[in-house]
Amino acid sequence: MAEPVLEIRNLEKSFGALKATDDVSLDLRSGEIHALIGPNGAGKSTLVQQIAGSLKPDSGTILFQGRDVSGLDMAARARLGMGRTFQISSLAGEFSALRNVMLAVQASAGSSFRFFRPVMRDASLIEPAREALSRVGLSDRASVPAAELSHGERRQLEIAIALAQGARAFLLDEPMAGMGPEGSQALTRFLDTLRAQAPVLLIEHDMDAVFALADRISVLVYGRIVATGTVEEIRNDPAVREAYLGEGA
């Protein structure tokens, strides 16, 4: 088996007496969608924030492509290829959808200290950005300011940004949240194709999507991973049924 793209070892994070992350270890292998599920308040978003670098763990290590990234900030991890989407969309609201994606292209080219050439006439930024927008189906909304996009479109835009970053791993924090059934289905079909490009750590509440997509599932309860396995194993795990799916589910 190849070395995992992302490997988390013994991560710990407490807020006062509350253990939000309790000795969490998990990995993300090339080509897979690894879903992270758990009831509200289980610490899923806290975990994503620590992986992405916006929250500092108390202890433990995070290896990304074999490299310890625990000491790096969010921007440095993003440059190494962590493509993250947010539970609540986080975009440059005044910029058009296209310019939001162009910013990611520019970041991945490492060329933000250029002071004179106008970006709106720079094909090396515009072309890859349009390509990413078209992959998520936002081509005809390219010139709309991000703040004026619908909720679902903003989620698609965040994924387009992660694509344009040339992400080596995707961290998607509840990409289906607040989307209608049709939007969820379309996004499920899209995410299905995404794993061929880079593995996906998918934090999601939508069980239909998780069971349809995941190669493996980890279940987080009160900050601890209580089980990791395939869809079948998780469905039949008594501890999981009790803790998460509820009795008789």
């Binding site: 969010m74 993003a78 947010f86 986080s90 910013l103």
Partner: peptide, 8 residues
């Protein structure tokens, strides 16, 4: 946050 998340 968005700026940092793309890697700048």
């Amino acid at each position: 946050i968005r700026l940092a998340a793309v890697g700048i």
